[in-house]
Amino acid sequence: MSRGRALALMVMIASLITPLITPLPTHADPLPSGTGFLSEDLQARQADEAANPGMLWVDEGARLWQSPQGATGASCASCHGDATTSMRGIATRYPAVDATSGALLNLEDRINLCRTRHQKAEPYPYESDPLLGLTAYVARQSLGLPMDVETGGAAAPFYAAGEAFFHRRQGQLNLSCAQCHDDNAGRSLRGDTISHGLGNGYPAYRLEWQSLGSLQRRLRSCSFGVRAVQFDYGSPDYLALELYLAKRAQGVAIETPAIRR
């Protein structure tokens, strides 16, 4: 057989098996949000803007949106106008690859990039109230909209890294994320019910924290729980994991700021 025909044959075989090996969305129907595992009281508090403590941060974010910052003196609103229209649906697409730098950015990083790139201001530290507030405010503009991140193209290697992280055993207790959040979702772990581990409600107000916190803060708790390395905020490991979680949440409505125990 000529090399050309051999190649053509290989391509043909590859195209036949590709549908089998291309990662399909793991679940046809969207997974249930973590909110469904809360008590009815907490679900009601989350849904009620006046009772949801996370709304304090959202309000702070709304204030910052209008506030002139950095060497340019521009506010977010100077460039993006009314967030209720300009930011609607944005959070459903994050984490996403920044075309200019090729870096994977979560919403926090994206906002900080506007601070450094467009406002000529210092980035806010992770878990600072201004960053939590702006992130929650931007995400809130997508309330009820389904998650829909890009995982192909430039995002593909990040997605693959996140998927591998999710499935590998880690820590002294030697457990993978999947062993809890896939294999044992819905079962109780000493008073807690294990959810599917989605990020659609973040930043979320966690009672244990008495504060709003980012998804990465939650990831650090899960790493800590299995006595694994808690990666730094903004580390490539957690960013990739966030992308994988976002894809797991494909079609799940954004609920920021969720309430969690």
Binding site: L189, R190, G191, L207, E208, F224, G225, V226
Partner: peptide
């Protein structure tokens, strides 16, 4: 009870 249990689950740590 859950709120009181607050402390983290695997927190065996």
């Amino acid at each position: 009870g859950k709120l009181l249990s607050g402390a983290f689950w695997l927190l065996a740590a």
